[in-house]
Design a binder for these strands. Sequence first.
DNA 1: GCAATTGCGTTCTAGACAGCATGTC
DNA 2: CTAGAACGCAATTGC
Length: 743
Amino acid sequence: MEIRSLDIPEEVLQFYLDSGIEKLYPPQAEAIEKGLLDGKNILAAIPTASGKTLLAELAMLKSISKGGKALYIVPLRALASEKFDRFREFSSIDLKNGKDRGVRVGISTGDFESRDEWLGSNDIIVATSEKTDSLLRNGTAWMEEITTIVVDEVHLLDSANRGPTLEVTLTKLMKLNPECQIIALSATIGNAYEVADWLGAGLVRSEWRPTDLREGVYYGGNINFRGSQKLIAASSKDDAINIILDTLEDGGQCLVFESSRRNSVGFARRAGAKVSQLLDRPTRDALDSIVEQVLENGETEASKVLAQCIRNGTAFHHAGLNSAHRRLVEDGFRENKIKVICSTPTLAAGLNLPARRVIIRSYKRFDSNFGMQPIPVLEYKQMAGRAGRPHLDPYGESVLVAKSYGEMQQLFDNYIDADAEDIWSKLGAENALRTHILSTIVNGFANARDGLMEFIEATFFAHQNDTWGLMEVVDDCIDFLKEHDMLKGDTRLVATPFGNLVSMLYVDPLSAATMLDGLDKAENITELTLMHLVCKTPDMRQLYLRSGDYELINDFVITHAEEFSEIPNQFKDTDYEWFLAEVKTALLVLDWINERPMDDISKSFNVGEGDIHALAELSEWLMHSLSRLARVRGHPAADMAGMLEKRIHYGARPELMELVGIRGIGRVRARRLYDSGLKTVEDIRKADPAVIGKLIGTKTAGKLLREIGMHIDIDPGNPDDVGSKTMDSLIGNEQSTFSDFEK
DNA sequence: GCAATTGCGTTCTAGACAGCATGTC
DNA sequence: CTAGAACGCAATTGC
């Protein structure tokens, strides 16, 4: 189908023609035929890279040209910014719809809100599903103006954690805007028709891809495909490494999936030793510049390991990396400098990072209840689907690795030839219903038990299940919410001010109850008390308790026993071990706010920088909530919690709060200034600029002074020379040697 | 005699959304 | 109760 033949505004047509798009892919054409441009709802269950985004774009732009507004819902922040960047290109499209300007795009996620004066003034708003839910809870006015909703990765409905939120949010949006067009994008799933039916959408289902995908299994020196074989030279003992070398000699790149972080790091290192021999001079130079940036942007041992890998042309990727490292690895791979990424499932879904060949080294993953479990077909398909870069690779290949002939056959049957699983609503669980029942009442979508059931009837859960069994769970939730002063009334249910706050803070009602209950029970409230309460909530992610931790943490608990609001019975070991894990998590965050160096924290808790930031971010939000909740209850701990919130944000002790408030000054620089007697902004004003320059580097010092409103040039002599190098020698930071890594 | 290999026991296990108010090293 | 990879260390084989 020709793009010229579409019923879209001239300016939109020109935009796509300019970017070289003339014809639609078959699944896209099918969506058009099913009414995409006539406002019909569409569910597109098609592979990644087969043009889902274009589908959504056409519908959104068409709708905007008629004066509408689009909401694009994504599951990941990273995806939100990827889409945001893409849609910003539409600013050149003037739809002449009376607004006399290009298409405007805004973004709204937990960590990043559009700088635009008012989010709602945009034509397209990109948001995560939780943020959409939150906006809805806060009664955002423009939600009713939405005319097109795009739901990316709608198969996430199946996720136990996050599916219910997506489901309830969509239900609310449909109730709010019954005329609204919905474009749902999904991976290939078994029961796509069921989702389509729920949404009242036309179904486009296809396996079509712009780049050929061959799925195979490696066994006995060959990659075996259905009907063909490819011999892999055995130049190393490790099969997967041989497959990598084969890919590289063919000019391609490899994405390797592993089940654990340790394995992915280990494999990237081993593979690097071989891969490095194939690198040419220009590639080496390009890699060296990435290595430099990796070292500049890391504070822990892990940076050195990553640097060594990248020097060799490989890299690992998992959630323990800090965001700078993540970006360097992803970009380095996109620019074809890094040849191999060995990743945990971080890269399986979401980010657009295709490779010539995908190797799935392990299709099993640990589950604390069932041991090693094979991953779902859906997940396999998503990993395999990463193979083949459209327009760049002639084809893509995915390879599972088998250790026996039987295993190979099994892999063919269970993955390559298998259909993806059906997806199932997880809304029936009490922990999901608890929070959504509260928000539904707060929002006025229901105000009684019957109304609640009526609302639930409109969800995907009700579409798949009988709801008669749900009544009991719903009643349990209502009881819980009443018991904790979040709801009141009998025939007519109303949210209390406290319940309203819980809903707006976006915490699980159980978290709120846990925190307040803890405050009531605690006798001697200290920072530890509050930090532990935060770590005890179901919204917090706890650290694993490793062998040896038990004794250590237990000793700590004994010496600080009176600071905990409650200590479970030590002889009910599961309870007690959970408790110890909470305490361990609290200890990490306490280390963070007591300025323990990143590297120390990383070593003693065996976590990466990414984990530390994630835990800090999480506990900051919960500490904020604790503070707000305590305040409405008139509990004196509110102030202490407020201070802790601030300290978690900056990762510093109280005395640094003034300095750390200055832009460009974080925990490390603030500490350096403070310890040299520059304890306040006023001290800095009075200080000799040269002294400040010595402490934190001339460049930063200049920025600092400008930031506090002073315009003084420092040391006009040789400005470039006094940068970070001086700093390093000042604090004895050896520019590390990496010889110890290459065994 | 010393290096390489095998064997055994131990250890550990993926990811990531949200508030609020503006900016880490 | 469930599984498997990797590592460290010791015993064994190999030259």
